[in-house]
């Protein structure tokens, strides 16, 4: 009886992990720009793998310490990676689609926002290239 309940819980966990993976890849295909895709792919690395590892722990086929260590690592690493990629995308001036109001560009000092600079003047592109050459020379 208890064994059956455990097995049903394992099946539910595996199915939940698979559903999260499907949703993440669907978001990677369907969403329009880097910032919204980050939102979708973060789900896979935290929830999809977490449910699969819970299933492995319930069945006793994974060492519990190692599985918990992997879960903790994933929970720390996922948001860190999302933050790094989002900051890099904003720094590179990749435009935000589907945006109604950009709070960050209002908070930054005027003329210091990479996204609106790139949108308004194509000159900033050449300037950044010149700055890059200068940096590689020095």
């Amino acid at each position: 009886m208890l064994q059956t309940v455990l097995h049903i819980a394992v099946v539910l966990a595996i199915l939940a992990g698979t559903v999260f993976s499907i949703v993440g890849v669907l978001g990677l295909i369907r969403l329009p720009d880097v910032y919204t895709r980050l939102h979708a792919t973060g789900k896979v690395s935290v929830f999809g793998l977490l449910f699969l590892l819970i299933a492995a722990m319930l069945l006793g086929h994974a060492p519990v310490g190692k599985a918990i260590l992997l879960i903790v690592f994933l929970v720390i690493a996922g948001p860190t990676l999302s933050h790094a990629v989002g900051a890099a995308a904003y720094q590179l001036g990749i435009p935000l689609k589907l945006v109604e109001r950009n709070d960050l560009s209002e908070a930054l000092p005027a003329g210091d926002d990479p996204v609106s600079n790139r949108k308004k003047s194509p000159k900033s592109d050449r300037e950044s290239k010149g700055a890059q050459e200068k940096r590689t020379v020095t």
Partner: peptide, 23 residues
């Protein structure tokens, strides 16, 4: 960065495949 996101998701999915094979 789009490709970088895709590669990261690829690594995560391969991780999931490894866990499934382990079970």
């Amino acid at each position: 960065l789009d490709r970088l996101l895709g590669v990261d998701l690829l690594g995560t999915l391969i991780l999931a495949v490894l866990v499934i094979i382990a079970i």
